[in-house]
Design a protein around this nucleic acid. Structure first.
Lengths: 208, 208
DNA sequence: AAACTTTAAGCACGAACGTTCTGTTAAATC
DNA sequence: GATTTAACAGAACGTTCGTGCTTAAAGTTT
């Protein structure tokens, strides 16, 4: 869009580029994403595509931002529409696993792939991905805190600790499903999460 | 080594190449590992280096195999020297976290990085990495089974399920430490593992 | 010391990379 | 309807990629 909010032709092309770029990057990485290959895939010229972003790094930044929007739309927003506290915590886990299993991105969770790729490469991309992950963990954390204040969860456990554990179990499913073709991975993850939450819930029978 | 077991000059060069290649690959990925860059780093010619492996994929295969040897030496063997059952299970977790935290590879766990890179790219490398991960999970699994047969762990939990959970908690520490510079990540992981094992141990006070 | 094998360098290749510059076409504005 | 502007295409740049082919040096064996 332009500054005054108009939608122009270039925006559609740009979104088409980013959609394809996210798919490629989730499979082959943000570095493996090459401008020439992307242009060929979309049937446009390399220079025309390039001029939308100005540099490869700007393209990568745009792809990460676009992936954040997808993730927010697919996981965060649905969870925020549910009841705060324990139900929302359950929905965060469920929604994330579902997002990974449904292959919203063909290479599994975009941020798992990109995070592992850039976790040892200082720069803008790493900073962006780190911020995104921190935001996600903070959302877990705040939801745990809410559940504790509502008397639904044991207050002995640190919110950040439980956030870490839930994210760990979910992420591992993504990894095992992709690398090992392990069909049971998501079930294992759900089982692990259920066990942990029931151990901490004041009314365990209400954890689905 | 040659077929008859002699150690020749080329082997030292080859090992020097692989050592540097593992370090690079753990940070920049097996694809980001380029022959030209590797040769420049080591002060040798590109063609000389290349002739040791014959192709890039063969180099990548050799790097993965070399990393397996390092991992076996650093984590698996020490654990196999401890008492079978629960003590060994604890040592597998401790040893892995220590291996990640000590930065045996500068980019953290080699197999975490490479696994995430190739989990959506069919081919030899993916197959190799998948086999390595399966072996690792099976070692966890067998150790859990031993502990159960020795009456140290609750027999209600499936060995593969617990293996999945322990690996998940450990891997998440590697990820958080690298991407988020989270100094607490390893402690969180250890705490999570301890909690889970104590919940399943017949004598919880013996879980360190 | 000579013959032979192993090891590595030198050089060049075609392809793909990110990037820049110059046109051309289509839309928006006047 | 003329003019300006945004959206692309085409061709080429220099660089780096993986990969061969040829040749020199080093080590081993006779």
């Amino acid at each position: 869009m332009t500054q005054d909010g108009r939608v122009v032709r270039g925006d559609q092309t740009r979104q088409r580029i980013l959609d394809r770029a996210m798919a490629i990057a989730s499979q082959d990485g943000l570095e493996g994403l090459s401008i020439g290959r992307l242009a060929t895939d979309l049937g446009v010229s390399k220079s025309g595509l390039f001029s939308h972003f100005g540099s490869k790094e700007e393209l990568q930044v745009a792809v990460v931002r676009a992936a954040e929007e997808v993730f927010t739309h697919e996981v965060v927003k649905p969870a925020l529409r549910t009841t705060p506290g324990l139900p929302r915590l359950v929905e965060l886990c469920r929604g994330w696993l579902d997002y990974s299993e449904r292959r919203v991105f063909p290479g599994g969770c975009f941020f798992y792939a990109a995070g592992a790729e850039f976790d040892a490469r200082p720069g803008r991309i790493r900073d962006l991905l780190a911020r995104a992950r921190r935001d996600w963990l903070r959302l877990y954390e705040q939801t745990v805190r809410d559940a504790q204040q509502l008397g639904q969860l044991d207050t002995d456990v640190e919110p950040a600790q439980l956030a870490f554990e839930l994210d760990a179990l979910a992420t591992a499913a993504n990894s095992a499903a992709l690398l090992l073709d392990d069909a049971l991975a998501y079930q294992r993850s759900r089982a692990g999460i259920r066990t942990r939450l029931r151990a901490l819930a004041t009314r365990p029978e209400e954890v689905p």
